[in-house]
Design a protein around this nucleic acid. Structure first.
Length: 219
DNA sequence: AACTCGGGGCA
DNA sequence: TGCCCAGAGTT
């Protein structure tokens, strides 16, 4: 297990690798962010970005989603997996935000999680990114990277990963860390074929040693 | 804890 | 082809 100091150093180095990591997810309004993250479930970010580019031209406010039929919204996001559930959930959530929250995304974990299609992970992202709330959203990238680098244990569940990260990372870096680990997970520490030979953390990475043995490079 | 949704990307 | 992906809801 990595020490707190070593973990902080790793996060800092990820910041040098991806200086703009924290900017890319920040949308102009929290509602766009919420929709983007709802769409991203079980999809690659590349695919989501392709869809949202057109989607946010057409849909600006929560009520915009209520003025079209479910079929039309489904067509607008059809290239994404799970589009039927996502379209339903986005409409239902837009309706609640319009009717109960005066067209504003609620700034509370409890309220966010109660929205249809919004779970703990999505709520974490919205709170930390849109409202600057100190939280570390543990998605699959964050989980994989944390385990491989030894920040937490392989057997840890999502909650345990979150607790360990919050223990080992200074609070002012929580929100930033989320983004840096996502970028690192996307460009270096990918699920299937991580770029271990190019990785700055290879010297102490558990996964790197496995990969070196399996793929025949110097671990 | 296990199952389902689901089109696209990648090996 | 087969497996995986910025998860959430139901049983």
């Amino acid at each position: 297990m990595l020490s707190k100091q070593k973990t902080t150093e790793v996060i800092a180095e990820m910041g040098e690798l991806f200086p703009n990591a924290h900017c890319e997810l920040i949308h102009e309004n929290p509602f766009e962010l919420l929709v983007a993250v709802m769409l991203s479930a079980q999809c690659t970010d590349k695919l989501v970005n392709r869809v949202t580019e057109n989607l946010f031209e057409k849909y600006k406010k929560p009520t915009d989603y209520l003025e079209v039929t479910l079929e039309e919204l489904m067509d607008d996001i059809r290239s994404i997996g799970l589009y039927r559930n996502k379209a339903k959930n986005i409409q239902a959530t837009a309706k609640i935000i319009h009717e109960q929250y005066n067209d504003e995304v609620p700034e509370s974990m409890k309220a966010l999680v109660s929205l249809p299609g919004v779970g703990q992970k999505t709520a974490n992202v919205v709170m930390s990114v849109a409202f600057d709330y100190p939280a570390i959203a543990v998605d699959t990238h964050v989980e994989r990277v944390s385990k491989r680098l030894g920040i937490c244990r392989y057997k840890d569940n999502v909650k345990e990963v979150e607790i360990t990260l919050q223990k080992k990372i200074p609070q002012e870096l929580w929100s930033v860390s989320h983004h840096r680990m996502i970028f690192f997970g996307r460009y270096f520490c990918t699920a299937r074929s991580p770029k271990c030979p190019e990785c700055p953390f290879l010297s102490f990475c558990r996964e790197g040693k496995k990969q070196a043995k399996a793929r025949g490079f110097d671990g």
